[in-house]
Design a protein around this nucleic acid. Structure first.
Lengths: 228, 228, 228, 228
DNA sequence: CATGAATGAGTGTTCATTCAT
DNA sequence: GATGAATGAACACTCATTCAT
């Protein structure tokens, strides 16, 4: 039965087998990422990961001591490099801060949100309870740097007088929440075929950022309903 | 091993035998809610649910045909009735719309967000992929009514000239996303002890709603950074 | 689920409930007979027996200590009285022995073979291995008297010169085997819808008995192909 | 409890690990045949089959998707090949038809009736009701070919003037019934130690065939009690 | 290194049996 | 007596993990 599920990928599998052998762990991680995102941790069978990576079940355990370790490796693998790259981009940025924020979200969507990588954040949120240390790790290595990046942009805006002063810790979530929500939604209800309810991510992000900017921009006005 | 964990509840069992049959499903659903939220669907063992409800494994299956049906029942149980109540409250509301929105979110937080019920939305997002029809059901019975409620408030604001005209479909997510995010966060990273990163939900909601209102309120001004 | 299977008999059940209470064991035995014959011992659920008898599961165990005891009671119940009746008929029989044998088989078919009672012999053969003492009991109480009855007829024929002398022990099975086969077949392949293969029992018995009689009847001849 | 029964086979396990995979299904089928015949389908535990085959429970399900599939495989395994072999023998047969029939039954007894294979026909009759499609399969693949073989012999006898003309469809059961009866009996009452009642199969078959032949052989006579 | 046959602990589910009402 | 809610032992089946080849 499982054989049938797996058999149709076999053709590609053999082609892959001939190629690099040192690439094994990477292929396994890629396969695991796909499957974990597709079906969740518990519903993903080790054998299926192995088959999708073109290796045998035994080989999987040659590289990862357990399914849990594989999961951890998947999460760790899919986060690292990005932040230096982004920080460099931001270092070089010279335009206005509102545009910088618009650009940041657009880039994030293209490079992360729209790719399978967005699945691991959703996955992490789903499994956080079962992998507390991993969740802590994730928060430290991904969420916190993300927060720092956003904080940096917001601070820049405030410093340059483009944004009004805000409580930074809460303002950060004004940006982060829409991103995390989008990833969760996309991989849950968004993946369940109900077209009517599907969010158009780019439109959604656009509205979010514009409203936020509208709310952030300083005004001479009195009489706004906000104060905080 | 599990036997040991469970054995100390045996004394109460006979006392409980007398309890009326009508209470059972509720107790089981409560126990299941807790455990599903705590550990996810797959990691929750049927026997554990039964024992937390003070009954034996067999009794669980007397009331729910399968673990999956139990899960569905948990989801159904924790959603339905609320909407009529809320709609009635909104029917009776006579104040300004910004305050209405503030009130709505505050109420939601007290009655849902801060209670274990919030866990099931997070759970639902985690398991949506494995239970597509249930996800569809949830979206129809919970998400969509929620959207309608929010739409209603926003429309009221626009109609009364308190909000500027907006694309309703996207604006709705301006309210919904922070709520869903908060539930996801609370039951994932928020549950992992890392104090530093914990969001203060009431503060967070406050900031969200005020920024949103600020963004929504019509102004004579030109020169806003927004365009949409 | 089981509820559904059982529910359609409920109407009759309540009607029955009002009637005699002392008839309970009999109704249970009747229901059990039907179900055991229909689905075998293991596949018959105690609850279903109770429901078909119009009582609750608990009541079943009030009358029968266990499912096994119920089975034994069913077997015991459906055998007893018949033999005296038959022996009396045979005592009174005055005609020729070939006709007596024809008559015996016809009567057997009408009174046993064509009725649900035939199912218990088949049932007994199926379950003999799991209930050895019961099988022994059945053989002693049913099979052996049956053999005696047949032996008696054959002996009468031999004594009266209507049949040639035969080894009685084997000759008995010439009559018994077709009967037992017919019951087994009827409740196995014969019950599986395949019209093509269904035996017409009366025709079948007729052919069996006539061939047997032909084989039994003494002849002056030499040169028969038999020797025994 | 079962653990204790099984534990003494552990020593051999490692030796067996080396055994080639191709032998496994056969060993499992053999063990399953024995146990199904011994105790019936429902009373046979999957784990017991596995252990009798010298493997673990898991291994059984590696080769057979379910207990039911195992049962089907047992039935399939123990029937197919024989018919071509027998047809070939009959093609080559040149002697008289009465002897041919005697030979056929003797061979059947030696090759099937006296072997555990006979148990599966009895098993099939017992379980037919619970596995209707399997029963249909069995009838088509085993019973019907068997009928054809018998029909062929009888027809040969009639064609050569050795037998008198008969209604073929019923006559076939004159041969088939004793065989099926014998298998049922042997594995039910015959297996219950009661020596007194045990049929001597070879004697029994001998008497059956001789009487049948006696009944079949054409005679000049008038005044036989048969007509049909 | 890689394999995949083998393992066996673990879990959902069933159902005969009990017993408080 | 009769009920039916509750029990828990039993069993089919799964799947992460091991290890001989």
């Amino acid at each position: 039965m499982i054989t049938k599920i797996l058999s149709d990928t076999c053709a590609k599998v053999h082609a892959k087998r001939e190629r690099r052998k040192e690439a094994r762990p990477g292929e396994l991680l890629a396969a695991a990422l796909e499957l974990f995102v597709e079906k969740g941790f518990a519903a993903t069978r080790a054998e299926e990961v192995a088959h999708r990576a073109g290796v045998s079940k035994g080989t999987l355990f040659l590289y990862f001591a357990s399914k849990e370790e594989l999961f951890k490796a998947v999460v760790r693998e899919n986060l690292a490099g990005r932040f230096p790259e982004w920080e460099a981009e931001f270092d070089a940025y010279t335009g206005g801060t509102p545009d910088m924020l618009r650009y940041a979200l657009k880039m994030w969507w293209q490079r992360i949100g729209a790719t399978p990588a967005s699945g691991i954040t959703k996955l992490m949120m789903s499994e956080a309870v079962n992998f507390p240390e991993l969740a802590a790790f994730y928060e430290k290595e991904v969420i916190e740097p993300g927060r720092a990046l956003i904080r940096r942009i917001l601070q820049r805006g405030v410093d340059r007088g483009e944004f009004r002063p805000v409580n930074m810790e809460h303002a950060v979530y004004m940006v982060l929440a829409p991103m995390l929500f989008l990833m969760s939604w996309k991989h849950s209800f968004g993946a369940c075929g109900n077209r009517a309810a599907t969010v158009d991510p780019e439109k959604y992000l656009d509205v979010q950022v514009e409203t936020l900017l509208y709310g952030l921009c300083p005004r001479d006005t009195g009489g706004t309903p906000t104060s905080n």
